[in-house]
Design a binder for these strands. Structure first.
Length: 606
DNA sequence: GCCGTTTTCGGCCCGACTGTTTTCAGTCG
């Protein structure tokens, strides 16, 4: 039972409670708890321990007991009883945009609709349009949504949509009526999975910006269009929202729509404690007294100015805010980089001047774990090295697959020898880049390595990877990996969970135990920069860092263009609070050469 | 169901847009 499965169960409870028309705040409590659990760096035993669980924000006695029951027994009586009240396929109706609990409940109670197939039939016969609260337009929208649903699944790897987002951003930025443009949301926070794109544009001509946006060649269809907010579907299938606001509102909108939601809640509370209210438009006076007498329309509230609050006695004066830095300063905080805005300790750090200076792409001096045509790469050794030179790297480590990875044309000892000779020969022609000779060595089922120590000893570095037998128990997989990294010739552990985002779950493994072992053996842990992996996940890096484990950011590049994936790795490293001091391939060549020897030397001293 | 600088009760974010209404409920973020 993983924390993801537990979060899914809590979400399902929330959905079923919605269908039952339960107290909306109880529903939100389950949703909050689900998000909290996902963000929580938990080991399996933590999930069984009620006391540990109750310390997680949003998890109280009742939900802790349910999580504990799930983690211990694999099931949950409360959820089973809820499920029994509705047909099981009814949950799939929530995947249709425009359908929420109220409408689904009406469809179920009045037309006995309990699956997408039922819904399609009812739409085609025109029954849906006749229901109160529905109509022809709604019915047509549902029909279209059903037709498109396989295409618009709604989740994307960051790397899948990064180019599209940048394309649209730069086109908007070039528009003469746009004075400030940013992509906000989870994209700006560099989340590994993105569900939509949020564009914030400051402009005096919202109509012109909106028109330009809707007519953009990347736009496939229009979802909604209003004077300040517009939603479209891009050709890749991702939903994309545009907010057009004024220059004065820009920092507030940018901050608000960057999130995360949890981060925003803390920001708003900090404003409230100062007698202010923070929303996507401004920092204004908190409407404490006004609220009691006469509720104001949103439009009227929008019209309020900062100056008004400044004159109220006992309330801190509201300063002029021109950018996000000033907004954070007004709330007594250092500027919090977007990647850290997950309410995972950034406020405490920002309050005390303890935010780390996060790593930047320019800090990387070299990289390891690159493939060539010798195994399953698409470019030759020479091409890969030339590409690294073009990126300005001081060194590159070549690590092709080892012999057990038959499907990837893994190298045996003889071919490895040939490659080492090729690298020596190439190196003799190069002065501005150093090429390290290594191997991505398979970790076999029992934790032994694919090559003997004598062969490994001849290489500059060794990457240990699990590529087979993913179905071991957590205990066995953890033992297997720890045995592998205990070998003094293993420099680093690659993609430690083996996950493929949105495609394959990582294998069961006790990451805290692996981190502990990496610390003891001075093994580096890879942050695999390929956008489909981003493994080890950013959520674990604060723990690894606290144990003194070194991170190495590798592209796992199988072609020259994928060396650029390093940029995605930097985003994930920043989310993991890493600085250039924590990432070993920020070391210049001379220092990385001695760092590569350190583990072997350390071992021989023991 | 959770939470506490209105702390064991009474709040819990709220604004934008759509579609079906005739002043608003539902959905979404």
């Amino acid at each position: 039972m993983t924390k993801e499965k537990i979060a899914d169960a809590l979400e399902e409870i929330a959905t079923l409670l919605e269908l039952k028309d339960e107290n909306p705040f109880k529903i939100r409590a389950y949703q909050n708890a689900a998000r909290s659990i996902e963000a929580f760096g938990a080991s399996f035993s933590d999930l069984q321990n009620q006391e540990t669980l109750e310390k997680i924000p949003g998890v109280g006695k009742a939900i802790a007991a349910k999580i504990s029951e799930l983690a211990t027994t694999g099931g949950l009586k409360f959820l089973d009883e809820l499920r029994a009240e509705f047909p099981s396929a009814i949950l799939e109706l929530f995947s249709i945009p425009g359908l929420g609990a109220k409408k689904i409940k009406a469809l179920y109670e009045q037309l006995k609709i309990s699956s997408i197939a039922d819904l399609q039939t009812a739409c085609e016969s025109g029954q849906v349009a006749k229901l109160p609260g529905f109509g022809e337009t709604t019915q047509t929208k549902i029909c279209n949504a059903i037709a498109n649903r396989t295409k618009h699944v709604g989740s994307f790897q960051f790397g899948e949509i990064a180019a599209e987002a940048e394309h649209l951003r730069s086109d908007l930025a070039a528009h003469p009526d746009a004075s400030q443009v940013s992509v906000a949301g989870s994209f700006r926070r560099r989340k590994e999975i993105v569900r939509d794109l949020d564009f914030i544009v400051a402009s005096k001509s919202p109509e012109a910006i909106t028109e330009f946006f809707c007519a953009h060649p990347l736009v496939e269809s229009l979802i909604a269009r209003g004077p300040t907010k517009t939603s479209v579907r891009l050709k890749s299938g991702i939903q994309c929202d545009l907010r057009v606001i004024s220059n004065v509102e820009y920092p507030f909108a940018l901050n608000y729509f960057t999130g995360s939601k949890e981060h925003n809640i803390v920001m708003r509370n900090r404003a409230l404690h100062r007698g202010w209210t923070l929303n996507e438009y401004r920092l204004g006076p908190a409407p404490t007294l006004e609220k009691a007498d006469s509720p104001e329309s949103p439009a009227k509230r929008r019209g309020k100015t900062n100056v008004e609050g400044a004159s109220v006695p006992g309330r801190a004066k509201i300063l002029a805010i021109n950018d996000e830095t000033e907004l954070y300063r007004a709330l007594g905080l250092d500027f919090i980089p977007p990647e850290l805005r997950e309410n995972c300790g950034e406020f405490e750090a920002a309050e005390n001047g303890k935010l780390p200076r996060l790593i930047e792409l320019e800090n990387l001096r070299g990289t390891f774990h690159c493939h060539t045509t010798a195994s399953d790469g698409h470019n030759s050794l020479e091409e890969m090295v030339a590409a690294a030179q073009e990126l300005g790297l001081e060194y590159i480590g070549i690590a092709d697959h080892s012999r057990s990875s038959v499907q990837a044309h893994g190298l045996d000892a003889a071919r490895l020898n040939v490659q080492r000779a090729q690298i020596r020969k190439l190196q003799s022609t190069l002065s501005d880049i150093h090429v390290f000779s290594g191997i991505e060595c398979d970790v076999l089922r029992d934790g032994s390595l694919d090559f003997d120590d004598e062969i490994l000893a001849q290489l500059d570095f060794v990457v240990a990877s699990v590529h087979s037998t993913f179905n071991l128990s957590e205990v066995d997989m953890t033992k297997r990996v720890i045995r592998a990294i205990s070998n003094p010739f293993v420099t680093m552990l690659a993609h430690p969970t083996g996950r493929l985002l949105l495609k394959r779950e990582g294998y069961a493994i006790d990451i805290p135990a692996v981190i502990e072992a990496a610390a003891e053996t001075s093994t580096w842990i890879e942050l695999n920069a390929a956008p489909k992996r981003l493994d080890l996940d950013w959520r674990w890096w604060p723990l690894a860092k606290s144990k003194g484990v070194r991170c190495v950011i590798n592209p796992d590049a199988h072609r020259v263009s994928r060396l650029q994936d390093l940029w995605f790795g930097i985003g994930a490293a920043r989310k993991g609070w890493l600085t250039k001091e924590d990432v070993t391939n920020c070391l210049p060549l001379v220092k990385i050469q001695s760092a590569l020897k350190a583990k072997r030397v350390g071992h021989s001293k023991r």
